[in-house]
Every structure is written in C-alpha cells, then in structure tokens.
Design a binder for these strands. Structure first.
Length: 281
DNA sequence: CATTTCACCTGGTGGC
DNA sequence: TGCCACCAGGTGAAAT
C-alpha cells in the first residue's frame, strides 16, 4: 500500500526515467474508475506535452508538463499543465517498452517520443488520475501538511482542539499528508504512544516525539525504497526493504523487538492497528 | 461542524 | 485440489 515513502520512491524513479521525454499519445480504459478527469479530456490534454518534472506531494505523484507546442531545451519552460496520479491501494506506474505485454488492469498508456510507454496499472481501481490545465486551474498540492518539513509548533497546531484518536488523526490526509496505516503504526510505536489515545490526552512533549519519529521513520523508509507488502514494486520493478524494519505492523502475536511482549492487533478507525501494550502507553 | 462508518474494488489467504 | 468467505486499506460519501 503506497504511502509517502513508496510514492516518493516511485516519483523519483519515474522522474529519472521520463523527464525530458514527450507524451506522443495517450490511451485510457473506459471504466468509470479511476478517472477524476474524463478519459477523453485527459487524452486530449496530455498528447504532445513534454514532461518537465515528476514529484510527490502527499500521496500524489505530479507530472509537470510543458505546453503542447514547446520545443527543447525545456529546462527553463514553466509548467503549463499537470497530470496527477494517486496510486490508491494497488496502483502502479510502469515505464516499459512499447511492445512489452500489457498487464491486466492497465487503465492508462502514455506513449513517449523515446519509444517507450508509461503505464498505469491498478487492479482494485482505488487510484485516481486527474489532468489539470494550469491556465484554467490552480497548481495542485496535497491538502494536508508535509510531515517531512513541518516544524514543532505548526505540528502541534494541527491537532489542537481535536478529540479523535491519534491514529485516526495521522491517517487524516487533510491534517497530515502522506501517512497511511503502516507508517502511522510504526511512528506511534517509536514515539511510545498508544494508537487509541485521544489527542486531547497527548502531551505537547509526546506530540514532538511523534513528529520526530515520523520524520525518522519516513526518511529511513525512503532510503530503503519503501515497504514491500502485497507485492509493491517501484517504477523499475524493484521492491523496498523497510518491511524488514517494522516493529509492529503485521507482527500481531510476535514478540516486541524491544520488550518481547506479544504485539497486539485491534481495529481502530476501520484499520488493522498494531501496537506493543508495554512500550506504548 | 467534527467524527465515525461504510462502499468502492480485486487478489491473496486460510479453512474446510 | 477446489471452493468460498474474508481480509487488506486509501478515500470520499453518507450517517451520526
């Protein structure tokens, strides 16, 4: 399940491979999902545009696109449109040869001037594809705060006056962008906070511990290429290795790596939630 | 308004 | 071996 580290890894990989290339043509499947912008509008909007850059905001991958008539050198061109990809649960972006076999559940195929193809594949169709013409729409950015760059006081301010559980707050993308189930559980373990604790019972000092734990966990996970659970692979088909560093996620019943107590699993905010009853209070 | 629950999807898993 | 109920969780709509 792609969260911030996996999305960052994929965005970097795709940036590295397609920046400077040009979208020649675009094909989309005819299913109602995963399209936030109609397939016809996406195809019309994307064709002919150069890819200036690819980056991540929250769990979204953003393609910065130049004008359809723009010629190289493109480095100085201002973005004129954006293609925004959300991977949902099972979405993948692949850069392949034109003639490589098309996997099931392929919903987008963007042929590139280099002779390759950028594909979006998503079995469960929880992903979302959106096209924005920046002459009509604002630049896209994820609604919540970025956990890697937020400071102590702004972080504390995000939670002020709320009553929901700390885990539900971490998962809320309009509060904090990019944290999903794995990294919520892992950061709460490292901060020593029980996931079900209500925010108004979490001290300022604990919130700061959590901010630092999040930053450390996310940074470390990016370095390891993300967590490979349910067959996750990056744009180059490489798995990540952060799953080997998990303290609690999907370790129910196994001994805590710090105190040997069995890791407990509960359902919270509709999600499987893992914590150590002794290390987390 | 804040918060919680549920539907959307399909593939993988475990029980029988 | 095959079948099937069930689970995985990101998000947005609906319910509370």
């Amino acid at each position: 399940m792609p969260e911030l580290p996996e999305v960052e890894t994929i965005a970097r990989g795709v940036h590295h491979r397609v920046r400077g290339d040009r979208i020649v043509d675009a094909w989309f499947s005819s299913l109602p999902q995963p399209f936030k912008t109609s397939p016809a509008r996406q195809a019309r909007g994307l064709a002919g545009r150069p890819v200036l850059a690819v980056h991540r905001t929250g769990k979204h991958i953003v393609f910065e696109l130049g004008p359809q008539a723009a010629q190289p050198p493109l480095a100085a061109s201002a973005p004129d449109a954006q293609w925004i990809v959300h991977l949902g649960m099972t979405g993948r972006l692949l850069v392949t040869a034109l003639d490589s076999p098309i996997p099931p559940h392929t919903h987008a195929r963007l042929s590139l001037a280099s002779g390759r193809e950028l594909r979006f594949v998503d079995a469960r169709r929880f992903g979302r594809l959106e096209f924005r013409n920046l002459r009509q729409l604002e630049t896209f950015h994820a609604p919540g705060a970025e956990p890697l760059s937020i400071g102590a006081s702004q972080f504390a301010a995000l939670f002020r006056g709320r009553r929901l559980s700390i885990k539900a707050a971490l998962l809320n993308q309009t509060i904090l962008a990019g944290v999903g189930n794995i990294y919520a559980d892992e950061s709460l373990f490292r901060a020593g906070i029980r996931p079900q604790r209500r925010i108004n019972r979490v001290t300022r000092a604990e919130l700061e511990k959590l901010r630092l734990a999040l930053r450390q966990v996310l940074t470390h996970a990016i370095r390891l290429g993300g967590s490979s659970v349910s067959n996750y692979v990056d744009a180059n088909g490489q798995p990540g290795f952060f799953q080997l560093e998990h303290f609690v996620y999907q370790r129910a019943g196994e001994p805590c790596r710090r105190c040997q107590s069995p890791i407990r699993r509960i359902v919270l905010a509709g999600r499987g939630t893992h914590y150590c009853p002794k290390c987390q209070r």
